[in-house]
């Protein structure tokens, strides 16, 4: 997995609550059996005026000029800022892959849906939870100041604003460790293979019908 240490990135504000995974990557693109290439269809139905289908040439599409990521000032953004309950809906990890493929390395919101939150860590996309008030303040600051950037330091667990305000955030110790080091958690788990076998043996005698 890709590691995440310190990110200094341009911020794009998405002033919406409940951004769902169907919106992040619409279902017609889930037919792909690959893990990459989803970035061009990130937020497809908000981002383009014409209906999107898999395999279209990108230069044949009509971008919606109103959509935030189509505004030149947000080109190359690496941090997405959004209101509460980001990533609700389906479990599709394609949503994380699409954000990552587009170039985002972090999403800041006041809350995330569970599965999206989990999935993010697996692809090295850092979800940062800040209070509703702070998110509102950052969205306003970002809209008012062209070229607004934030620095996210995972080891120190701080978001640093351009005026050097340091906003701390919580992150699970183990996840932080995996992300900082870019560890493969399957490898980590398999280091405990004996314990898994041991558990299995015990359960097989207690609830044999579950192993039929």
């Amino acid at each position: 997995m890709k590691s995440f240490t310190v990110l200094d990135g341009l911020v794009a504000p998405m002033d919406r609550a409940n951004v769902d995974t169907d919106a992040i990557i619409p279902k017609q693109f889930l037919k792909s059996i690959k893990r990459s290439g989803f970035g061009v269809n990130l937020f497809d139905s908000w981002r383009y005026l014409d209906p999107g289908e898999p395999g279209q040439a990108i230069d044949s599409r009509q971008p919606n000029p109103e959509f935030i990521l189509n505004q030149p000032r947000y080109a190359g953004a690496q941090i997405l800022l959004a209101r509460e309950n980001f990533g609700c809906g389906s479990s599709r990890e394609h949503a994380v892959w699409a954000l990552d493929d587009y170039g985002f390395r972090s999403v800041i919101s006041s809350s995330f849906a569970d599965i999206f939150f989990n999935n993010s860590f697996k692809s090295g996309l850092l979800p940062v939870v800040l209070s509703k008030d702070i998110v509102a303040r950052l969205i306003a600051a970002c809209e008012q100041n062209e070229g607004y950037r934030l620095t996210i330091d995972l080891a120190k667990q701080v978001v640093i604003t351009p005026d050097n305000e340091q906003i701390t955030f919580e992150v699970d110790e183990f996840r932080k460790h995996c992300l900082l080091e870019g560890l493969d958690d399957i490898g980590l788990t398999l280091a405990h293979a004996d314990e898994i076998r041991h558990y299995e043996e015990r359960r097989r005698s207690e609830v044999p019908w579950q192993f039929n």
């Binding site: 990890e93 989990n118 999935n119 697996k122 788990t189």
Partner: peptide, 16 residues
């Protein structure tokens, strides 16, 4: 679960 976790369960029969 997401696809990375699907792979994790396939490989280890467990989840973190």
């Amino acid at each position: 679960i997401g696809t990375s976790e699907v792979e994790h369960v396939m490989a280890t029969q467990c989840l973190l």
